[in-house]
Simulated assay, not measured.
Amino acid sequence: MKGFYTIVLLILSNSFMTFAWYGHLKFAEWKWFSKLGLLSIILISWGIALFEYLFQVPANKIGFQNNGGPFSLIQLKVIQEVITLIVFAIFTLVVFKTETFRFNHIIAFVLLVLAVYFMFKK
């Protein structure tokens, strides 16, 4: 069950982080937002990123083997990276409708899944 909670928390944390890192690129289309300076955009992104940490830290704490979780530190990192790329791909396709999902992206995701497989192989 700790593995499930870890993955759910990682998905939530990466959703907020993707939004914090790339959301402002879409928000620039809004008239009031486009008038903000870089410092304002950074502060808004930090505010959003705070929620990322509220999920990321517990995910790592719950999931880490030394805390009774099912994952090694390396496994946690690989899981987090794969989730990051999946969340980013979905975010890109949904929010930035000008992006397209191509065959080379599918190959890349298959290779990521294989990376996770080999990371967990004893």
Results as ranks from 00 to 15, higher is better:
Leu38Ser: 11
Leu38Gly: 01
Leu38Ala: 11
Leu39Ala: 11
Leu39Met: 13
Leu39Asp: 08
Ser40Gln: 14
Ile41Met: 07
Ile42Cys: 03
Ile42Pro: 00
Ile42Met: 12
Ile42Gly: 01
Ser45Glu: 06
Trp46Leu: 15
Trp46Ser: 13
Gly47Leu: 07
Ala49Asp: 14
Ala49Leu: 02
Ala49Met: 08
Leu50Glu: 02
Leu50Val: 15
Phe51Thr: 10
Leu54Trp: 13
Leu54Ile: 14
Phe55Met: 10
Val57Ser: 04
Asn60Gln: 14
Asn60Leu: 10
Lys61Gln: 09
Lys61Phe: 09
Lys61Leu: 07
Ile62Trp: 02
Gly63Met: 12
Gly63Cys: 11
Phe64Met: 07
Gln65Phe: 11
Asn66His: 06
Asn66Pro: 00
Asn66Leu: 10
Asn67Met: 08
Gly68Pro: 06
Gly69Glu: 03
Gly69Trp: 04
Phe71Pro: 05
Phe71Trp: 08
Ser72Val: 03
Ser72Ala: 03
Ser72Glu: 07
Leu73Tyr: 03
Ile74Glu: 10
Gln75Pro: 01
Gln75Asp: 02
Leu76Thr: 00
Leu76Ile: 04
Lys77Ala: 13
Lys77Cys: 04
Val78Gln: 05
Val78Thr: 09
Gln80Pro: 00
Val82Trp: 04
Val82Ser: 06
Ile83Glu: 05
Thr84Met: 13
Thr84Ala: 12
Ile86Glu: 01
Val87Pro: 00
Phe88Gln: 05
Phe88Lys: 05
Ala89Phe: 02
Ile90Glu: 01
Ile90Ser: 00
Phe91Lys: 01
Leu93Met: 14
Val94Met: 08
Val95Phe: 09
Phe96Ala: 05
Phe96Ser: 02
Lys97Asn: 09
Thr98Phe: 15
Thr98His: 15
Thr100Lys: 15
Phe101Met: 06
Asn104Gly: 00
Ile106Leu: 15
Ala108Glu: 08
Phe109Asn: 09
Phe109His: 08
Phe109Thr: 06
Val110Leu: 15
Val110Arg: 02
